[in-house]
C-alpha cells in the first residue's frame, strides 16, 4: 500500500520543481504559476499528514484556508502583472524597476 511517506516525497518533488521555476524564470506569469505549484505541494503534504492522523481535521482545515489565501494572492498578483504591463509593455521581472535609483 501507499504510505504517508510517498505522498510527502511527491510533495517535496513538486515543491522543488516549483521553487526552481520561481528562481530561474523571468516571466512574471510563469513565476506566479510556479508559486501555485509550490502551494499545491504544501496542500498535498497537509492532507497526507491529516490522513495519517485521522482523529481530527486540522490538516484539511489548514489546507482549506490555504486555498482561500491563495485565491486572494493570485487575484492581487495578476492585477499587479496587468498594471506593470501597462507601464512597461513587458512582463519581465527585471524590467519592473520603478523603485530603482
Amino acid at each position: 500500500m501507499i504510505t504517508t511517506n510517498s505522498y510527502v516525497l511527491l510533495s517535496a518533488i513538486l515543491f522543488t520543481i516549483g521553487g526552481i521555476g520561481f528562481l530561474v524564470r523571468r516571466n512574471v506569469i510563469v513565476t506566479l504559476m510556479s508559486i501555485e505549484v509550490m502551494l499545491n505541494a504544501v496542500n498535498l503534504a497537509l492532507v497526507a499528514f491529516n490522513r495519517s492522523m485521522p482523529k481530527a481535521h486540522t490538516g484539511q482545515l489548514f489546507a482549506f484556508f490555504l486555498i482561500a489565501a491563495e485565491a486572494a494572492e493570485v487575484a492581487v498578483g495578476l492585477a499587479i502583472v496587468i498594471s506593470i504591463f501597462r507601464l512597461r509593455r513587458s512582463v519581465r521581472t527585471d524590467e519592473a524597476d520603478l523603485l530603482k535609483n
Partner: peptide, 14 residues
C-alpha cells in the same frame, strides 16, 4: 490524490 486521501470536500474545492 486528495480523493485517495479521503479528502472529498477538498478535492471538490480544488
Amino acid at each position: 490524490l486528495f480523493l485517495a486521501l479521503h479528502a472529498q470536500f477538498l478535492a471538490a474545492i480544488q
